[in-house]
Design a binder for these strands. Structure first.
Length: 455
RNA sequence: GUAGCCAUAGCUCAGUUGGUUAGAGCAUCAGAUUGUGGUUCUGAGGGUCGUGGGUUCGAGCCCCAUUGGUUACCCCA
């Protein structure tokens, strides 16, 4: 028999990890709730149709497809073979696979809104915290199963939404102690204007893919890539002057106005960025015209949250505005804007920077020592009383050596031990020892709950 | 999908140009110590060297394949 294992890029979460993750989830969740977002959950799997074509060509390849059941049915054999031929040619075949694990939370949400738009009150604000799956090659900060925390507002074009979302990022990251994070913003309209200026709206995707890599590969390589992608020298030099925009936010805005302010979409984009920048309380907000983001459906403001420089984790969240996401599902005219937190990466950042608060792993508060058969029965009934009063406690399972029971308490990070032997049973008081400080007090049985509750 | 690196005890790792019975630290268990632990000391258990082939008198070490992990590219949270 082979060694047990789990699929590549997936993880088991131990108690300690779950508690740390829960800490992140509850920080994000309570912030979402405070901003009046409502929870939503959607299935782990969607119909393949729902997902295909929504994330670009690369995205499609990374969708985890689910094999249909019943393919071994002899009556359908010839059809199955025919369908499989399509798969071999890189196409999809409903006969082989018609469901897939969800790839993000935004598209399923759009699908949900399209299905329920008649029942929803707009603007509709929802948050969603669920796992998603990508058939990617795992590496640092990248998993095949990971959890996203999304908040979206649909049915409103107001830029106030963008401002609020920028504020949410700030609230969450400051609360988590990631003070050095950056929230970069840009507008797709500015990128569209740049493409227009370079003589081809059809080149927008090529341009954005290339310039998005600026901080990674440098200006020289970006120019090379642009040339490779079919832009001419003159167009590349326009892009170069765009990329050279630098300095403080005001200086950047002035420079971008000079460059593309005369183009309608450019002007709109600049106004958007300026609005969000000037109205958000987020002091970590940075205007970054090189920010592009991969997902094709963004049309206005785009966000990307970056981990503090020193941890080299890159993006820990992102989002943006989409004018017509539900249009993909036959319900046009519902604009929206949303953001996402990448919990798994945030976890890695907090771990690396040592930012988790202590005591997250305290679950059991009291360990009753087992000093013998009669003694343990007495401890048992006291323990039940404490549990009734909401105190998590545990009785050591056998009459082992004292030192062993202490070690157990220490390993399980249980802060208090209670020792009940024959003497204590007679006197109806017992020593309560704080394991960390070593302090010990004798407490009457009847006072035990109150004593422990207060510390 | 492409490329690099790694795989030896529960964990972290040594292991010389290929040469006797594969080691250390930590962890575990037992004892010194039968109601107050964490330090210390003594002892014990624990391995098909990822798997399968090959070269060789001889392989943990060299070669091939395979599996798993990891890092980078593409892309992305």
């Amino acid at each position: 028999m082979s060694k047990p294992s789990i699929p590549q890029g997936t993880r088991d979460f131990s108690a300690e990890t779950v508690r740390k993750r829960t800490y992140i989830f509850s920080t994000i969740k309570s912030t979402f709730e405070r901003y009046s977002f409502q929870p939503l959950e959607t299935p782990a799997m969607e119909n393949l149709d729902t997902l295909m074509g929504k994330y670009g060509e690369e995205g499609d390849k990374l969708i985890f497809k689910i094999l249909n059941n019943g393919l071994d049915n002899p009556e359908k054999e010839s059809q199955a073979r025919e369908d499989f031929e399509k798969i071999l040619q890189g196409k999809n075949a409903k006969g082989i696979t018609e469901r897939a694990l969800k790839y993000d939370l935004t598209i399923p949400f759009a699908r949900y809104v399209a299905m329920n738009h008649g029942k929803l009150t707009f603007p509709f604000r929802r948050y969603q915290i669920q796992p998603v799956w990508r058939a990617d090659r795992p590496q640092k900060g990248r998993y095949r199963e990971f959890t996203q925390c999304d908040a979206d507002v649909v049915g409103s074009t107001s830029l106030i939404n963008e401002v609020e979302l920028a504020n949410i990022y700030h609230d969450v990251f400051l609360q988590l102690g990631m003070n050095g994070y950056e929230l970069r913003i840009n507008s797709r309209k500015i990128l569209a204007a740049l493409a227009e200026l370079c003589g081809g709206a059809d080149k927008m995707i090529d341009i954005t893919i290339a310039i998005d890599k600026l901080d990674k590969i440098g200006l020289g390589k970006v120019k090379e890539e642009l040339l490779q992608r079919g832009l001419n020298e003159q167009q590349v030099s326009v892009i170069e002057s765009y990329l050279n925009i630098d300095g403080g936010s005001e200086a950047k805005l002035t420079a971008i106005r000079n460059l593309i302010g005369s183009i309608d979409s450019g002007k709109e984009g600049i106004e958007e960025v300026e609005f969000v920048f000037s109205h958000s309380k987020n002091t970590n907000l940075i205007i970054d015209f090189t920010l592009a983001r991969g997902l094709n459906y963004y049309t206005g403001i785009i966000f990307e949250a970056k981990a503090p420089e020193e941890v080299k984790m890159g993006s820990v969240g992102g989002g943006g505005r989409y004018d017509d996401l539900t249009g993909l599902f036959g319900v046009p005219g519902i604009p929206g804007v949303g953001i996402s937190f990448g919990v798994d990466r945030i976890y890695d950042v907090l771990e690396e920077m040592n930012l988790f608060p202590p005591n997250l792993d305290i679950s059991t508060k009291v360990l009753f020592f087992n000093m013998g058969e009669q003694e343990s029965l007495s401890a048992f009934s006291l323990m039940q009383q404490l549990r009734g009063n909401g105190i998590a406690c545990e009785l050591y399972h056998e009459n082992a050596k004292i030192s062993k029971q202490f070690t157990y308490a220490e390993k399980k990070n249980i802060p208090f031990v209670v020792i009940i032997g024959s003497k204590e049973m007679e006197e109806k008081k017992c020593p309560v020892k704080n394991i960390r400080s070593g302090e010990q007090e004798v407490v009457a049985f009847g006072d035990l709950s109150n004593y422990l509750k207060s510390r």
